[in-house]
């Protein structure tokens, strides 16, 4: 706990320590190949995906077991999302979008385990995923439509006089997409975990100052519980938002004409 008082007489606030990337075995510098805590929790996310989607569906039952139902639910959820937003031709990219969704959702939920590390709370991770989406969508748009892809910036339904201004805004917003796409996920995950840690730091106050601690300690524990519940919701919603935005961007590449 970050709240463990080192000196025994004061509260310790280290809300950001949980985000430190450290070697999982031993100590020292983190090189690119080092098995770090980030590596371990990413690997756990992959293992969970494997357990749910592969082991869970291994029986191929017509009447599904509980775990197979969850796997089918996840499949149907993303499959329907891709089909609804991108249309039938978008289904070719369903495995990529499913990969992103499953990885994010499992990273988020595993990160909620106390003492866990949350890969998706790191901008390094979300920026790579957002840039991958951005580059894929942009390249795909030009490959599929050539220069016609530029019509995504030219709002033909707007009055002619407004179109150049709108085009400028569209271009800016297009290039801001990977930034907002990545910061939104990392920021949400980081903020929630940090807030929980801050409340956790207040929790041992009763050990230091009994009088005010009797009020603050229960309050902070209740607050941790409440924020934790919110974080469960946020974990899913942010994975969902990241995925649905990916679908929306992909739709632009497949159908650039508004």
């Amino acid at each position: 706990m970050a709240g463990d008082a080192k000196g025994g007489d004061e509260l310790v606030f280290k809300p950001m320590d949980q985000f430190k990337v450290e070697p999982f075995f031993g100590s020292g510098d983190v090189a690119w190949y080092t098995i770090s805590n980030a590596t371990v929790w990413m690997a756990l996310a992959v293992l969970c995906i494997f357990a749910l989607l592969v082991l869970g569906s291994s029986k191929r039952s017509i009447v599904p077991s509980r775990i197979q139902s969850i796997a089918e639910l996840a499949y149907g959820f993303i499959h329907k999302m891709v089909e609804d937003i991108c249309g039938k031709e978008g289904l070719k990219y369903f495995p990529y979008i499913m990969t992103l969704f499953m990885f994010i959702v499992f990273s988020n939920f595993l990160g909620l385990i106390p003492t866990a590390f949350t890969p998706t709370s790191h901008i390094a991770v979300t920026v790579i995923m957002a840039m991958a989406v951005f580059l894929t969508v942009t390249i795909l748009g030009f490959v599929k439509h050539g220069a016609g892809f530029l019509s995504v910036f030219w709002i033909s339904s707007a009055p002619l006089a407004l179109r150049p201004i709108l085009a400028l805004i569209e271009v800016i917003s297009y290039f801001v997409r990977p930034v907002s796409h990545s910061i939104r996920l990392a920021g949400n995950m980081m903020a929630g975990h940090a807030v929980i840690k801050v409340f956790a730091a207040f929790a041992p106050l009763v050990l230091i100052s009994t009088g005010i601690g009797l009020v603050v300690t229960p309050l902070s524990i209740i607050a941790i519980t409440a924020i934790y519940a919110l974080e469960v919701l946020v974990s899913f919603i942010q994975a969902y938002v990241f995925t649905i935005l990916t679908c929306v961007y992909l739709k632009d590449a497949l159908h650039p004409h508004h």
Partner: peptide, 9 residues
């Protein structure tokens, strides 16, 4: 730590 995270990601 970015290279490590990016590689493993």
């Amino acid at each position: 730590t970015w290279d490590n995270q990016i590689f493993w990601l």
